[in-house]
Design a protein around this nucleic acid. Structure first.
Lengths: 209, 209
DNA sequence: CGAAAATTTGACATGACTCAACTGGAGTGG
DNA sequence: CCACTCCAGTTGAGTCATGTCAAATTTTCG
């Protein structure tokens, strides 16, 4: 085998490392015992996804959520006119999943796709309900998480209805510098809620100023 | 005093009745002891608001959330161009508040106004944090609540970005029959994210079909 | 009743969409 | 290494939904 190209990103992630990262994340927010740690680890399973592979696909019945250990994901849904809408991009230490179908246990209409080679710790609704019983403090963690996510989504919603596409674009690249290198432009357009053509034109005008 | 007009809505609500309604709501979702009940009641205070009065105003520092006992509220924010955007309407047994400023403890940029004479049980962040310690099962209730709210907001967001104003209008009046009698049309337009003039024209076209 | 607010209507402007053609770079296979 | 293909991105022309501004009309409420 040739020696590895120094620019090739290698995934050396192991479940052990991933679990430790998750535990560190959790301990930053709530107090848990070593016994709790072991229980949590037992229900989070490492899943490696190559670029463009899906963590969740529209119509999946076996719904699961995930904690991103490394990499980037895009969460999108497809409307009746078959056009894609990016709900958000997920990065390291973010949770991804379709919260709506989580409750209803109906088929999801979300898609979650890796933008680059990524690692994610996944768990099912049953895992989580079991963990809530075994590790009561997790209720608190997930309450805080849900409330923060809610605040973020609310901000995104308010921005979408009150600001122009140009303002939304500027806000995005300010909040996520470098996202344009990571995510193709037509997906950024999709996140902004406009067509790729519109974004292309908008950028031309923007850089003329 | 003249005998009361039979069409005048009278508020006979008492804190006792309101507390019972809250406890019934909570018991439907989690198990709590009689001691818990007393603790909860001690932190929720009844507030009566007449039509057009505000439960929360932009810039308020003393942030509080509320559980609607009776009546209707509208939750809206005002953008840089001084136009109002209705985030949602709140009805009996709903929770209202600005989840974003709840965490940050910064001044809110939300407004919550009674659409008719209403009663609401209000509580502060300190009340809630204290209650989470005294009544641990409440963490679960608020986790479930936040996740449901999140699912609803996500649905609203997806609808807003993927459906036409007309489709959104039809969805609204289907989900809330009678809302047109309760809420003035320009506020419905604001909820839909369009101007009152546009809604007026849209309805004319709609009923021509 | 009369003022203020809400709604409707009209004329016009505009941002984003649609559809279609073109450009250019990345990857593939001969 | 060069054609070939494919896909992302750009550009152009025309359309449409919704916004803007202004005025007329209706409704609400003190």
């Amino acid at each position: 085998m040739a020696h590895p190209n120094e620019f090739t990103k290698k995934l050396v992630m192991t479940e052990e490392i991933a679990h430790q990262q998750l535990i560190d994340y959790i301990k930053d927010k709530i107090s848990i015992t070593p016994e709790h740690e072991a229980l949590i680890k037992s229900r989070f399973h490492l899943q490696k996804l190559k670029r463009k592979e899906f963590f969740l696909r529209e119509g999946d019945e076996c719904y699961s959520q995930g904690f991103i250990v490394e990499g980037t994901f895009r969460v999108f849904f497809i409307d009746q006119k078959a056009s894609e809408h990016v709900l958000y991009f997920g990065f390291k230490d973010w949770w991804v999943g379709d919260i709506a179908s989580f409750h209803s246990q109906e088929k999801t209409n979300m898609n979650i796709q890796a933008m680059e080679d990524s690692s994610i710790l996944s768990f099912t609704k049953d895992d989580l309900e079991w963990l809530f019983i075994q590790v009561p403090p997790l209720e608190r963690l997930f309450r805080i998480m849900a409330q923060r996510t809610l605040a973020v989504l609310q901000k995104r919603f308010l921005l979408t209805i009150s600001a122009s596409a140009e303002q939304r674009f500027l806000e995005l690249i300010q909040r996520h510098p470098g996202i344009e290198q990571l995510v193709p432009q037509h997906q950024i357009a999709s996140y902004l809620g406009i067509l790729p053509e519109s974004l292309s034109r908008m950028k031309k005008l923007l850089y003329k100023k």
